[in-house]
Nucleic acid binder design. Structure first.
Length: 634
DNA sequence: TCCCAGAAGGTTTTT
DNA sequence: CCTTCTGGGA
């Protein structure tokens, strides 16, 4: 298929790379109005946005030079959408899509226009980014802030606020007032103090991402030129995972685009709202529909899960939304036995052994690989890993806690870092046989780092020669994986010398700021070294590094947006679900997210030693209602 | 310094 | 629900 840069007439446009789209999805793809799209798990939300981007760019509905802004929560979601659009569109078209995270968007605004903020709200240009924890707010409220003036309130009033309310309601609750709070309550008096200390207190301003979001919103209110530039630039805005939008993010989008000709598309799933405790809005879709006169559309296909799993999912979905409509599975079932079962084990040890044996026997048939499985837990993945890992190792399998720390950063985070991906590609190319597919990948990486244009053939062939020479040298001189931490680090430094540290920093601003790059490289070295310790040759070292043969273990929250052939949920008990009664809807939504990661099979495990099943009886009733059986195992 | 009782934490993205 | 932290008192 050749990708054309020619404009296609709207009536001639067809979805690309898929057989068909359901009628409602196609309607959204071609829509010229604001839309909210409620789409359950596996309905193809990202695909819908990718098709819509292709439609808008190729038909000129998003007319050049105007652009599409796509905002996601997670970096992988943002890059995933961009990749799908690149695959379907000519570079000239795909280049008019900006796909980024909410935080990257807000930060880019503060970096570009932040100095136009009034003095009291103006961060220093070289501000640091931090995460404020409850602890920090507590210390602040109880010590640093001191005594409020008598006109505002007493120390007791101040302490009565509590760190959570302080952050949610006072510090970040409303858009910032340009001239400060005029008749402040105790909360706003303290919030103002906190803001001023963060902005002007030390040598550098220290801001959290939500604070950056608030500053971005304010600067667009005080700087109409910047705001109009954005309105003019973007003819269309996409928002993914809209159910998890926070008030800060919503206010920013409203300030920029409400009442303009920019067409907004918000997609998400109410039933997967599991971030309310982390400041997500209660019902962002209803507010969006009202504020933007958006038309609501629901999608009813499920391209991920088998008909039997979709049937059970619907039982859970009805507990979250009585009006839920049964989705239609578009995927054939391949499991011969039960597609969902609960196993009751006598001990966590027996549970680990049994699970390891059953995964191993599945892998042994050759039909499934370790990566087809996921072990999900509600919380404390590390503690479960301690018990499960030895059992899996005993069966010749490796299990990997994706949230485990390598040095100071999380494994899952390290593996998606650009510099880590680049290192692995270069090492594969240099060290392993039949690494052809890494050649073009490395070539692409290096070309973009060096700013070589796609039509610059001379530049590309010069780069190709350099790349070949370097990887041959590397393969010849560093053929043994490092045996010490120092060796791992110096190898990485050496490769980065070839890549060009400065080029890397200028392409990826995050690496130019603070200690981040140093942390990533340190973590990468640690992980290369640890992977080398377990394996002999580079090929298996890199497999271990990437975990290509490891069964992932993670929390439900981390699994959002992912999918696996078989989901094994460990710990369907009151202990793991201690918070169930605090917010039954949100907890059930978490259960729904875990269940809907599976394409073919879900296994739940229970062990009386970890807790009862009285508090989460509702979940057991739902499964029972769906015909799922509990089996005593040993 | 130690002990005990009661409180708090746990699920988190993002440059 | 279970584990770890905290603060007051001895």
């Amino acid at each position: 298929m050749t990708l054309s840069s020619r404009r296609i007439r709207s009536e001639d446009w067809k979805p690309i790379g898929v057989k068909s789209l359901e009628t409602h999805a196609l309607e959204v793809v071609r829509s010229h109005e604001n839309r909210s799209v409620i789409a359950g798990p596996g309905a193809g939300k990202t695909e819908l946005l990718a098709q819509r981007a292709a439609y808008l760019l190729q038909t000129g509905a998003a007319p050049a030079p105007r652009r599409i802004l796509a905002i996601s929560f997670k970096r992988d979601a943002a890059s995933n959408l961009a990749a799908r659009v690149r695959k379907r569109c000519h570079p000239d078209h795909a280049g008019r899509l900006d796909s980024m995270t909410f935080d990257a968007f807000a930060k880019s605004l503060v970096d570009r226009f932040g100095q136009s903020l009034p003095e009291r709200w103006r961060p220093r240009p070289d501000y640091d980014i931090t995460s404020y924890y409850e602890r920090d707010y507590k210390d602040f409220l109880f010590q640093e802030v001191g005594l409020p003036p008598a006109t505002v309130g007493t120390r007791a009033d101040l302490r009565a606020i509590g760190p959570k309310t302080f952050e949610r309601s006072h510090l970040l609750g409303q858009p910032l007032p340009i001239d400060g709070w005029s008749c402040p309550t105790v909360g706003h008096w303290a919030a103002d103090w906190f803001w001023q200390a963060s902005l002007h207190g030390g040598e550098k301003s220290v801001l959290s991402f939500p604070m950056i979001g608030r500053l971005a919103e304010l600067l667009l209110r005080v700087n109409p030129m910047a705001r109009d530039a954005l309105r003019l630039t973007y003819s269309h805005l996409f928002m993914d995972e809209f159910q998890d939008t926070t008030q800060v993010q919503y206010d920013l989008v409203s300030t920029i685009f409400r009442g303009t000709d920019t067409v907004l598309t918000a997609v998400g799933d109410n039933k997967q709202q599991i971030m309310r405790w982390a400041m997500a809005m209660d019902d962002p879709f209803s507010e969006f529909d009202a504020d933007f006169a958006a038309k609501r559309t629901s999608l009813y296909n499920n391209y991920r899960s088998s008909p039997d799993l979709v049937r059970i999912q619907h039982v859970l979905a009805q507990a979250l939304d009585a009006a839920a409509v049964a989705p239609v599975s578009q995927t054939a079932g391949t499991i011969s036995g039960e597609s969902c079962s609960i196993f009751d084990f006598p001990s966590p040890h027996a549970e680990a052994r049994n699970l390891a044996i059953s995964v191993a026997s599945n892998v042994a048939t050759g039909k499934l690989t370790p990566r087809d499985f996921v072990l999900l837990v509600r919380q404390k993945a590390g503690e479960y890993a301690d018990v499960l890992e030895p059992a899996f190792t005993a069966q010749g399998l490796s299990l990997r806690n994706e949230a485990g720390l390598v040095g100071t950063i999380m494994l899952q985070e390290l593996l998606i870092e650009e510099v880590s991906v680049l290192l692995v590609s270069l090492l594969r190319l240099a060290m392993t046989p039949r690494a052809g597919r890494y050649w073009s990948e490395c070539q692409k990486w290096m070309a973009s780092l060096r700013g070589i244009a796609s039509n610059d053939e001379l530049g590309h062939s010069k780069l190709a020669r350099e790349l070949d020479a370097y990887t041959i040298w590397l393969g010849a001189n560093r053929s043994n994986p490092p045996t010490t931490m120092q060796a791992a680090r110096s190898l990485i430094d050496e490769i980065l010398d070839f890549v060009g540290l400065e080029r890397l920093k200028s392409q990826h601003p995050a690496y130019a700021q603070g200690e981040w790059l140093e942390k990533v490289l340190d973590s990468a070295s640690t992980h290369v070294f640890a992977s080398s310790a377990q394996c002999g040759d580079w090929s298996s070292v890199l497999d271990t590094y990437e975990g290509v043969n490891a069964i992932p273990l993670m929390t439900i929250h981390k699994s959002k947006g992912l999918e696996y052939h078989t989901v094994i949920f460990v710990g369907l008990d009151d202990g793991a679900w201690w918070s169930f009664s605090n917010d039954e809807i949100e907890a059930t939504a978490g259960f729904f997210v875990a269940f809907t990661r599976a394409k073919q099979r879900v296994v739940f495990t229970y062990c009386a030693k970890r807790g009862g099943r009285t508090k989460i009886a509702t979940l057991y009733h739902l499964l029972q209602e769906a015909g799922v059986q509990i089996t005593q195992a040993s």
